[in-house]
Structures are given as C-alpha cells and as structure tokens.
Amino acid sequence: MEIRRIKTPLEENVIESLKSGEKVFLSGHIYTARDAAHKRFMETLREGKPLPFDIRGQIVYYCGPSPAPPGKIIGACGPTTSSRMDTYTPTLLSLGLKGMIGKGKRSKAVKEAIQTHKAIYFGATGGAGALLSKSVVSFETVAYEDLGPEAVVRLGVKDFPLFVINDIEGKDLYEAGTEQYKK
C-alpha cells in the first residue's frame, strides 16, 4: 500500500491533508506519556505550573517501552490502549498538542477536540513493539524518571509506521472499517 512520509512538527496544511485510513511514515520527535505521566500533567496544570516540555505542535505517544538491552536505543515500544488517556486529552489539545499515537477508539469528546483544535490521531500496530523499535533513532528522558517505563521520553523517530485513525473531518477508521467489512 502507498505510504506517505511526514515529519514533526506537524504543519497545519499537513494535518489538514491527512486522511483516515492512510498509512504514513513519521520522522522527527515524539514524546512518550501514558497513564501516570498524564495524571502528573494534570496535577502540574492545576498548580499553575508549566508542563515538563512545550507541548505546542507536538505529538504524544501512549507507550511504556520495555528496557533497552545492551547496545540498543530502546526495547520493544508499541502503543498502549489510548482510551485510558481520554479524560486528559481535550485539555492537552486545547494547550496546543497536535497529535496522539496509540491504539484503540477515542471518546466522543476527544474526537470533537481533534476537529476543534485541528489535530490528528494515529494508530501504531499494537503488539509490533520490536518492529517499531527499529524506527527509533534516539531516546532522551525528559521528565518523571521515577515512573520507570511510564517516564516521559523524547524519542527521535525515522519512518515510524502509522495509520491515520481520526482526521479533522471527523472520519474514524475503526468505525468506517468495521462498517465496511461487517457481514
């Protein structure tokens, strides 16, 4: 299948052109954050403090990698289920977050916020953590090192394979795909 190459930070015209169901190769930088990190983001914002990195224009990846074996940049690094982050996502999108990478359906509120704030939701293939690790070229812990696999890490990626799930037109690959192949 045809694969488009895109890079971070995501330009607005690129986000507008991404279509649900497309496969893309992403290059640039993404930030890992899952359950515990998101909880801390919210606590930080409630205290009126800045987030540990400037999320404007960035992409978060719902991922808690396995430890890097000697000589490797990272261990297996596939996505975790995104819906557990749904309660936090609209706030982050309102602060300028432009993309999320994970697996699984998003809530109605998240899908609406994706359209309102012109953002994009990508799916990485769950259970393909070894393959995805080959597209990671750098690893730098940014915050919450005490959370172990849940720390916030800035990953340099090259041709990271993704599918567009929710686009700014409100299309959803999970719903459209299931509807198309239901018998």
Binding site: S66, G75, A76, T125, G127, A130
Partner: peptide
C-alpha cells in the same frame, strides 16, 4: 515484527 524480535532479541511486544 516476529522476524525483528527473533533477530534483534527484542520482545515481540513491550
């Protein structure tokens, strides 16, 4: 992914 895991000795899934 299965081939990469085996060759690189990285877990199939994190």
């Amino acid at each position: 992914n299965a081939v990469t895991a085996k060759e690189e000795r990285i877990p199939i899934c994190q």
